[in-house]
Design a binder for these strands. Structure first.
Length: 325
DNA sequence: AACCAGGAACACC
DNA sequence: GGTGTTCCTGGTT
């Protein structure tokens, strides 16, 4: 590896990165199969660059529309821009002087951009981290086995609603994958090769960034759950279903559309989208035939073990952890 | 139709 | 043996 992460991330290179405000429920629009989650590039004013426009799952078009100023980040920061750029509606900066000197305004914008950049980097790392734990794969693609590569491909298919492309990349380790050029990717999948290549690029960038700044203890990328401490060691022991469910529940900004707490204190949760939860579990366990019927059977196995039960008032798709955290 | 409950056989570690 | 998967029958919402 060894290529500079930030450039690969698209912060210095002209790579569009669709971003939005984090922690909105709309972040997981990709989970909703009825929607086309990729924002129309033309509408966003993003030029059709050679980069395929990787759409990060944590960012969605609604929030982009709500925060048009963020779009600046998605556009090429080529040198020509600053002098001709028209003033955009500023992000909420309290008590801003009415007519700030140009320099000051530039500084403010620069600081805003820096803040947004670091926010985006954080969100990207978080998403990679989440995917790593859900798939039980290492963050660095170079460490992937053929099985890991297939998992990642299945995940990416799911993420971007691609047709089955994983078959085009069989028998490849992560190292093989990383040694491939964009042209190699396109050769295997003319339609989606560039997208996969770009997505892999993000992962490699995230890995290289992690290399340079290992997560500090306690407050890591998965800052909103103490749970991650338990199973943060990536390619280790298999995860239990109840652990997996809890992990989804502890990422509400990612998965609240498919599973959410009804009463966190009591450990009562509801599966909002049974098919999606089952599919995620299937990806995680490498069981393509997984469905809610089977998943719920596994949940029912927990009844006699005293791990999960039905709440006192039984409701469809609602379960309860016997020992809530 | 989708969900729920649980038996049974099986695979995998 | 523990855990989860797969298949099944039959009941409920």
């Amino acid at each position: 590896m060894g290529s500079p992460g930030c450039e690969r991330m698209g912060f210095t290179a002209p790579s569009p990165l669709y971003i939005s405000h984090p922690h909105t429920d709309t972040r997981m629009a990709w989970l909703d199969e009825t929607e086309d989650v990729k924002p129309p590039r033309s509408l966003l004013g993003i030029p059709e660059l050679s980069w395929p426009g990787v759409y990060l799952p944590c960012y969605d078009r609604l929030a982009i529309e709500e925060n048009p100023w963020v779009l600046k980040m998605t556009q090429s920061p080529v040198p020509a821009a600053p002098t001709t750029r028209t003033p955009e509606p500023s992000p909420p900066v309290p008590s801003q002087p009415q007519e700030p000197p140009c320099e000051m305004q530039g500084q403010v914008e620069e600081r805003c951009l820096e803040q947004v950049q670091s926010m985006v980097v954080g969100e990207v790392l978080k998403d990679v981290d989440t995917a790593c734990r859900l798939l039980n794969i290492a963050p660095d693609p170079l460490d992937w086995s053929c099985v890991h590569v297939q998992k990642w491909l299945l995940w990416t298919e799911h993420l971007y609603k691609l047709p089955q492309v994983s078959t085009m990349f069989q028998e490849l380790s992560g190292r093989d994958l990383c040694s491939m050029t964009e042209a190699d990717f396109r050769q295997r999948s003319s339609q989606f090769g560039d997208m996969l290549y770009a997505h892999l690029d993000i992962w490699r960038s995230a890995a290289s960034m992690n290399d340079r700044s290992p997560p500090e203890d306690g407050k890591s990328a998965a800052d909103d759950d103490s749970w991650s401490d338990v199973i943060c060691k990536y390619p280790t022991q298999p995860i239990h279903l109840w652990q997996f469910l809890r992990e989804l529940l502890l990422k509400p900004h990612n998965y609240s559309r498919c599973i959410r707490w009804l009463n966190k204190e009591k450990g009562i949760f509801k599966i909002e989208d049974s098919a999606h939860v089952a599919r995620l579990w299937g990806i995680r366990k490498n069981r393509p035939a997984m469905n809610y019927d089977k998943l719920s059977r596994s949940i029912r196995q927990y009844y006699k073990k005293g791990i999960i039960r039905k709440p006192d008032v039984s409701r469809r798709l609602v379960y309860q952890f016997v020992n809530p955290v």
